[in-house]
């Protein structure tokens, strides 16, 4: 297993991607409706806060932080997020992780040294998008090809609510769709069933003025780090830093 994990990391090192590593603090997967020169359109992106750690350094640009194309960022799921799944049916089904097996979770709470990754429609004006916005889970590529990705919330005195589940879409709130009000911003648990490089395709759709359908689709990369590879993660971060400054 250790050899496999190392190979996966090496694989990611030679990946042609030059994505920068987002490794800690607050950021969002956000949707905006803006004009980049070709008329107003949907823009699905990363919005990393000023304190978010990108390639080992804070993003800066206070107070807003910066926005990035999804393809330019790889979100690190650190080894410290590894947990052992217990025996809770709704969690086992939703995450696709059995009792006693490992799971890596980007948590909905803010933990030091871990990306605090929200999902945000706060840039959308409710008067333009009165019906809110829908995030849909597309294809998911796991390191082994058979891993499971999930997105859920634990809150208050409620049972866990799953929004995305590659293992059991039928047990999600709306069939692998997440509906958010315009102007909303929320946090979730992102579950990964195995270490390595993941690619998660997300689509957004909304009705402009309640009539015109707008959509966008992007692929988000996650590097789930197994316990032995902390040193390699440092190497990855340094490499990313060099690339960004070049």
């Amino acid at each position: 297993m250790r050899i496999k994990a190392s190979l996966l990391i090496i694989g990611s090192l030679i990946n042609p991607s030059i994505a920068a590593l987002y490794s800690a603090d607050h950021g969002d997967i956000g949707i905006a409706y803006e004009d980049e020169g070709d008329g107003p359109e949907f823009f699905l992106h990363y919005h990393l806060g000023e304190n978010a750690i990108l390639d080992g350094s804070p993003v800066g640009n206070a107070p807003d932080g910066e926005e990035f194309e999804p393809g330019d960022i790889t979100t690190v799921v650190p080894a410290s997020t590894q947990a052992t799944m217990g025996s809770t049916t709704v969690l086992n089904t939703g995450t696709g992780v059995a009792d006693g097996s490992p799971i890596w979770i980007l948590p909905q709470g803010d933990n030091p040294g871990v990306p605090f990754l929200g999902i945000a429609a706060e840039e959308l004006d409710a008067s333009l998008f009165p019906g809110g916005v829908t995030f849909s889970l597309g294809s998911v590529t796991s390191p082994s090809g058979s891993g499971h990705f999930s997105l859920w919330q634990q809150s208050g005195i409620s049972t866990p609510e799953f929004f995305f589940s590659t293992n059991s879409p039928g047990d999600t709130t709306a069939g692998n769709e997440l509906n958010m009000n315009s102007g909303a911003h929320d946090h979730f648990n992102y579950g990964f069933s195995e270490p390595g490089m993941w690619e998660v395709e997300l689509s957004v759709s909304a009705m402009l003025n309640g009539t015109d359908l707008l959509t966008d689709t992007e692929t988000f990369s996650f590097q789930v780090v197994p316990e032995p590879s902390t040193a390699l993660l440092g190497a990855l971060g340094a490499l990313g830093l060099l690339r960004r400054r070049r």
Binding site: I105, Q108, G109
Partner: peptide, 10 residues
């Protein structure tokens, strides 16, 4: 309190 991802509370 804070809800923990796999159940339980901080």
């Amino acid at each position: 309190w804070e809800s923990l991802p796999l159940g339980g509370n901080e």
